[in-house]
């Protein structure tokens, strides 16, 4: 039974974590000077780079301009060396297109687009190393990049992928757990208001367990938001100290 390996009797997972423990998060804002906003985030062994351009004049198809708010344009792609098996195409396949759409939905919920009519905001995320929870790491990295670009948001957007094994929810799945046949749920949350921006699950789960799983996901997201908050405040302190008027 897969469950026996993923969660031991003492409550330890494959990588030694407890069921509700998150992986170590390290992040840095303002990584690239040429973009409007950029951030690098590592969650365990999954590493992502997010870059934001904008808001700027609409490029390409003028017909997509919205007269009352900004258009958010996302692209998710993976480096060809990011997975154990080399990927042939960085983006353009169905999975990447689906992820890009999810990211767009997530950020449309949080970014205050009505302040920028007729303009466009580009969010590009690149996975440099993939070890599970790709969507969540992208959302977290992109949040930092959007804050770095000075684009107004209602709140942080934090995301986490949780799984359900042996009646226990496991927070922040790694690749081995995701591919071990665990029912996984990805959740993007605006922590202060407790509002869910995106909810996605693609496995079978008994509806009695759904509430527990969502609760666990929300707690995990709140944990992530604390870490992101720390990163942003530290960056603010560093930079505002230098500008000293």
């Amino acid at each position: 039974m897969a469950g026996l390996e993923l969660l031991s009797d003492q409550g330890y997972r494959l990588d030694g974590r407890k069921a509700t423990e998150l992986r170590k998060v390290q992040a840095r804002m303002g990584v690239f000077a040429q973009a409007d906003g950029s951030a690098y985030l590592e969650q365990g062994n999954t590493k992502a780079l997010a870059v934001v351009y904008g808001p700027h004049e609409m490029r390409g198809s003028r017909s997509r301009t919205l007269h009352d708010r900004a258009v958010i344009n996302c692209q998710y792609s993976m480096a060809t060396f990011s997975t154990a098996e080399r990927k042939r195409r960085p983006h353009g396949d169905r999975k990447s297109t689906e992820m890009s759409l999810h990211l767009k939905q997530t950020f449309e919920a949080a970014v205050m687009t009505q302040l920028y009519p007729r303009s466009q905001i580009d969010i590009y995320v690149k996975i440099l190393q993939s070890d599970g929870g790709n969507y969540s790491v992208c959302v977290n990295a992109a949040t930092l990049a959007v804050i770095d670009a000075g684009i107004p948001m209602r709140d942080y957007v934090c995301a986490c992928t949780v799984g359900f094994v042996d009646e226990t929810p496991l927070a922040d799945l790694c690749y081995a757990e995701e591919s071990g046949g665990v029912s996984s749920l990805a959740l993007a949350l605006l922590p202060r208001g407790g509002q869910i921006a995106l909810l996605q699950m693609d496995a079978r789960l008994h509806q009695d367990h759904l509430e527990t799983l969502i609760e666990a996901a929300m707690t995990a997201c709140k944990g992530v938001s604390k870490v992101l908050d720390q990163v942003v405040r530290q960056h603010l302190e560093e930079v505002s100290m230098l500008t000293g008027e």
């Binding site: 205050m112 804050i147 670009a149 000075g150 942003v232």
Partner: peptide
């Protein structure tokens, strides 16, 4: 404004001029 509470939407420094409160982000267009 979110439920009568004045909330920040960018990361930066709060500037108060008389009765006006605004937040100046570190980097912006």
């Amino acid at each position: 404004v979110d439920e009568d509470k004045l909330t920040a939407s960018v990361a930066g420094e709060v500037q108060r001029v008389d009765k006006l409160i605004c937040v100046r982000p570190l980097k912006t267009r």
